[in-house]
Design a protein around this nucleic acid. Structure first.
Lengths: 244, 244
DNA sequence: TAGTGGTCTAGACCACTTC
DNA sequence: AAGTGGTCTAGACCACTAG
């Protein structure tokens, strides 16, 4: 076994299953276990780490509850990938009023690399010397442009992102090309008057009400990795929030 | 044991812990276990239902994850109550921009009982003959009126609600006085132009952008028990949504 | 048939709270 | 010291998938 688990007599007590979980999360964070890949069975992990299979199960169940793993009876346990389905249900909360749920199309407006302005520095925990990549794009649902969004990421974690294609499924690219796993995000929503630049793009009058979504996304270590501001026209669609 | 658990050879297979959970949920739904009350220990429940303590634990852990129970090591397991804290973190997602999180004050504008209109019938699964109680109120954060909301509930489940005081913490009253536990809700958010009636109350210009929150709340059986439409001014506050 | 995850049990011991 | 929930183990058996 490569990692060392501490006994439970220590004052800084941490449950075994927590330590097991930390080890496994690190393997995903380090990219040793990639999205979509099947991981070893419970018994194999248990033997490797010298714990019982039940302890491994508790760690895996925790990670499954946090959408880091997907378990399929009879097949195996897989690292969750940022495919369109996961995005759709975990990270994209906009749905059409007719109940249809679909992955939005994207048109990139601009991509560029600049120094981080003060607001961005604060959002992404950067300093003035740091560079960021800024992506502006429009997104459509059912053929209608409904979102104008600005995405800002630290250039250091995504070298070369500003060159070449910007695909629709960004979080998939973060994971596959840069080994950055977006694990969670928080969003702040406001109703605001539509600014001119977005009004043109969305086919709205200036000052029409639009939904502003200010999102900060974090990786597995809790480090902010993306700041995104989306302006959405919500006459034909809505933001869906489940409270439970 | 009063309830009968089925063996696991049956074709309609249901895990034991699921059956245990159903039994315990029913006790809360029926009001036999009230909010805030301590329930029997794992061993007592296990003995009563003739299952192992581990099986009871899995049922209790599930219910804890769904915010139906609160477990405190060394003390016991308690039925979750709709106190201000739970509402604040589970059912009230509006927070001030300065980061303060507080329970809003309420001023009731009107309370009345009428027949359910077609839209309400559809939302709450009622028929034309059914009556509903409608509450209109204003809510404040930090002394500022920020929400104008309309709440509609089936009169049959809340007899007499339209008479007497309407307290600030409605879900607490649903539970304590009517035995109705709000277990989950879903909200649809839009940015809309402020209608005249709300503009006056919120100190906004007509057509100013406001956040519209359309909420349907469900009880433990999954029956819709409340429809609520909130119009919020979001210049000093925001709707907080955590994606994980 | 073999391998995976899912359920269930029984028992030991630890951590926290209260008396 | 007694009672609660929390962790950990070991082993049995069931359900699902694939070859």
């Amino acid at each position: 076994m490569e990692e060392t688990l501490i006994g439970n007599g220590a004052p800084g007590f941490r449950p075994l299953y927590r330590q097991v979980k930390d080890v496994l999360v690190r393997r995903i964070a380090d990219g040793r276990w990639q999205g979509g890949q099947m991981i070893p069975s419970e018994f194999q992990i248990a033997a490797e780490l010298s714990v019982s299979q039940g302890t491994v199960r508790k760690a895996l169940d925790d990670m499954t509850a946090e959408n880091l793993l997907v378990r399929r009876q009879g097949k195996g346990t897989f690292v969750a990938s940022h495919d369109e389905n996961r995005i759709l249900f975990q990270f994209f909360k906009l749905g059409r009023d007719d109940g249809q749920r679909e992955f939005p199309e994207s048109e990139v407006v601009s991509v560029g690399r600049t120094r981080a302005d003060p607001v961005t520095q604060e959002k992404l925990a950067l300093v003035a010397a740091d560079s960021v990549v800024t992506i502006r794009r429009l997104r459509s649902l059912g053929g209608e442009r409904v979102i104008a969004e600005t995405i800002v990421v630290p250039a250091a974690r995504f070298p070369g992102l500003e060159r070449g294609e910007v695909p629709n499924n960004l979080y998939g690219v973060y994971a596959a090309r840069y080994g950055v796993t977006v694990a969670r995000a928080n969003e702040r929503l406001k109703a605001v008057a539509c600014p001119a630049f977005a009004a043109n793009a969305l086919g709205l009058a200036v000052d029409a009400p639009v939904l502003s979504i200010d999102r900060l996304a974090y990786d597995l270590d809790g480090t902010p990795v993306e700041w995104r501001l989306s302006l959405c026209r919500t006459d034909q669609c809505h933001y869906l929030s489940d409270l439970k």
